[in-house]
Design a protein around this nucleic acid. Sequence first.
DNA 1: CTCCAGGAACTCC
DNA 2: GGAGTTCATGGA
Length: 293
Amino acid sequence: MEKIKEFTANGISAVHIEHTPKISLFKTFDCGQCFRFEPLSLFGNKFEFGGVAHGRYVVFAQNHENELIIYNSTLDDYLTIWKKYLCLDVDYDKINSDITSTITSPHMKEAIEYGSGIRILAQGPWECIISFIISQNNNIPRIKKIVSAICEKYGKPISFMNKTYYAFPELDELAKASVEELFELKMGFRAKYIRDACDKLISGDAKIEYLMNEPDFESCVSHLCQIKGIGLKVASCALLFGFGKTEAFPIDVHIKRTLDKYFPEGFDYIALGKNAGIAQQYLFYHEKYKQST
DNA sequence: CTCCAGGAACTCC
DNA sequence: GGAGTTCATGGA
């Protein structure tokens, strides 16, 4: 059972939660699902990650896997915003054992153990759509640079400890950008895709509300694929990370590599149902970061 | 120099 | 309907 205390650090309101479900902040913010958090060492904890989410600057910290410290947060913020954002209301132990019993390959088990503690963040739908359009044929450090450039140019400033951060711009803010202005942010051919996403979301050809309410996954994919620059993989990432549609199984170069290498007989992600996205994240993290053959 | 990065559109046959 | 090519950028 969680044990929660509020406190202040350097005049900043904070929350300390003990006995949390297992979570690894390092893996969660290092696994390539989120482009807006950076490692810090401000408050003397073993792991600290700061960034903007839900329109405010926040620092998540921990010293072990069953603990969480949140700076610039009240107890109420934790219960109403951050607990959900960090997916701490979901039973990952059960998900992990369900994955293991569906996919019996030893490699699946190894990937789960290696990625243990990863949580799929509940990020904003709109932010995810744009971020994963940027992600195509791109690498994570440069994706982060481009996304933060977008925020600095079009998002609202947020002040924290004498520094200025920027929120991810709302649709109407980003929609002011011309293709030429976007191109200046070094996103290359993706500029016209961002412009098209803004156009279709403003005109109503594409609707975030539709995606939130439509239960059929394939219908959501088709709906997103109307937008230029969105194919199956980008749509799957947006639906997984931005809409909580965990039946998504995005297949990128790393996943393709790992499926070829360890599952030559095929990988039935449909059989995983709502656990497919979490299994995918374990496989991705293992393939990308574990240094071995 | 070439190759690659959380791909998709375009152009051929 | 598949297979190859192109698209911007920057780091290795």
